[in-house]
């Protein structure tokens, strides 16, 4: 369970999050939906310790984000990066291999290699394992990145707009895969989505922010979550 208590954050001088209290349940898919600038990605990056919140606290199970060592949190929680950030020339297998870094710290064991091939198989990347990332299509690259976060083998998976560069078929297969991760492997998934249809079809919980009731307002915070 991810517990967010009285969380506030500014981007520049404007307040994006204002005293948020939220509980994200374990073993289910929670979708954050809403228009641009509503603070969804900000919330995600605060949970993933990419930014330090202005005030408030976030707990992932018994670990307090920001207070516990970052490598300990990396074995509990993974975040899917946005695709354009990845520049190096790596093969898919090498990229997915780096997902095991929090566990092996530079000395991969046979167990790590097994997890890597599991993740590659789960995302049906077998045929592409030795292709270089810069030769893949946007959708394939997205799958390779997701395979890396899956290989990280964490209870929690955070995904920031994973459907961004995908067509309808790829989007549906990705969401189906998230359902599998959650139902068959007991992972907790928190995903930022733009499309309410995907949210209502695949997510267990939705956290909605609208202009009249943004994440940033205290009044809205209580009625945000519904099943």
């Amino acid at each position: 369970m991810i517990r967010i208590t009285d969380l506030s954050h500014n981007l520049g001088t404007s307040r994006v999050l204002h005293g948020i209290d939220l509980t994200i349940p374990k073993g289910q898919i929670t979708a954050l939906i809403g228009p641009n600038g509503a603070g969804k990605s900000t919330l995600l990056s605060l949970i993933a310790r990419l930014d330090t919140p202005l005030s408030g606290r976030i707990d992932v199970d018994e670990l307090q984000v920001g207070a516990c060592p970052t490598d300990v949190l990396a074995r509990r929680l993974a975040i899917l990066p946005q695709t354009p950030e990845i520049a190096p020339r790596l093969s898919v297998a090498e990229l997915v291999g780096f997902g095991r870094y929090p566990h092996h710290k530079g000395r991969p064991t046979p167990e790590d290699r097994a997890r890597v091939s599991d993740a590659i198989a789960l995302l049906s990347l077998d045929g592409l394992a030795h292709r270089s990332l810069d030769t893949l299509s946007g959708g394939q690259r997205q799958r390779a990145l997701l395979a890396m976060t899956v290989a990280q083998d964490t209870d929690y998976l955070l995904l920031d707009e994973p459907l961004n560069n995908l067509d309808i078929a790829a989007s549906r297969s990705l969401m189906t895969l998230l359902r599998r991760l959650c139902e068959d492997f007991g992972r907790t998934v928190v995903v930022v989505l733009h499309d309410i249809n995907y949210a209502s079809r695949y997510a267990d919980w939705k956290i909605l922010s609208t202009p009249s009731c943004p994440l940033g307002s205290r009044a809205g915070a209580m009625q945000l979550v519904w099943r």
Binding site: A48, L50, V72, L73, P81, E85, I86, L90, F98, G106
Partner: peptide, 17 residues
Amino acid sequence: DQFSILGMGRTVSIGLG
């Protein structure tokens, strides 16, 4: 390994601990 991860950017680096 750490330098390779660094080459993938800040998000990946922090995400991998």
